[in-house]
């Protein structure tokens, strides 16, 4: 009884924001559709074209932010209502999987609407992220069943991974005191945007490394995302591994977390 209550409570928290998010997406599509109709009606607009690509990636950022906001209130509500950290954690995974599957399904619908619009209008070009990343795999089959199936699966793993990353960050921040938080934010910024590019450039220019570290990292990213092999299933496995690592680290932090005054 209580387990389902904390599942429902956590899920309910996202309801409003999901509705607002998809209303915005629908509004964007409606604007594109309207502009397209208007452009057809107005003469001398023959070169007019609208390209929509990667709109299906937007939920990833949205869910990452959801993950970032999913700990403190739920944790406090759990403890207030006699729910253990373990139950909260297990139910969080269940909620995130529900969100990942649900949003992936909604993504399919949005993709279908977008592609239908493109089908009926020569001025609209609509493509998914998967078609951008694995172009060779889907060349000549822009509306194939396999494409839709793989997009559906790919986004479940991608959404789950980003939710787990967001959740890990927020749990880690909850455990930190004010000084640690500042040190982490400043340290991350300096490392990522100042020290790393500087060292990367320096090592390359001094001839210590024959290739830029950033380039190696990019190649690694391409490899684990299956872009090099043009295989989205490699990406799914990589994203699953990332999710498992993030969840494991999160559990290490959550299991001994106490209430803060």
């Amino acid at each position: 009884m209580k387990l389902s209550a904390i599942y429902k409570f956590q899920l309910a928290e996202h309801k409003k924001s999901i509705i607002v998010f998809y209303l915005v997406i629908i509004a964007i599509l409606a604007v594109v559709f309207t502009i397209n109709i208007v452009s057809v009606l107005i003469p001398n607009q023959s070169n007019f074209s609208i390209q929509l690509s990667g709109i299906d990636l937007a939920p990833t950022i949205f869910l990452f932010v959801c993950g970032l906001n999913a700990f403190k209130e739920n944790f406090q509500m759990s403890l207030q209502n006699g729910i253990s950290r373990k139950s909260l954690f297990v139910n969080r995974i269940a909620v995130d999987l529900t969100l990942a599957v649900g949003m992936s399904l909604l993504n399919q619908i949005i993709l279908f609407i977008g592609k239908s619009m493109a089908l009926f209008s020569a001025t609209i070009q609509y493509s998914s992220l998967l078609e951008e990343l694995y172009g060779l795999r889907y060349a000549g089959h822009p509306n194939g069943l396999m494409l839709y199936l793989e997009i559906f699966l790919f986004y479940i793993f991608l959404f789950a991974a980003f939710l787990s990353i967001g959740y890990f960050i927020t749990v880690a921040f909850y455990r930190m005191n004010k000084k640690q938080k500042i040190a982490y934010i400043v340290g991350f910024y300096i490392l990522a945007f100042v020290a790393f590019p500087l060292i990367d450039e320096l090592l390359y220019k001094l001839g210590i490394f024959s290739v830029l570290i950033s380039e190696v990292l990019l190649r690694f990213l391409y490899a684990i995302m299956g872009v090099s092999a043009q295989n989205p299933y490699i990406a799914m496995i990589s994203l699953l591994i990332i999710s498992i690592i993030m969840r494991s680290l999160t559990w290490l932090l959550v299991r001994k977390t106490g209430i803060k005054n």
Binding site: Q76, I83, S84, K86, I259
Partner: peptide
Amino acid sequence: VENDEAQKKVYLMSEKNLYP
């Protein structure tokens, strides 16, 4: 400790508000 079964028998009205 970490026992839902035991904790459902107890309610704490705390000084600090834990409700959203």
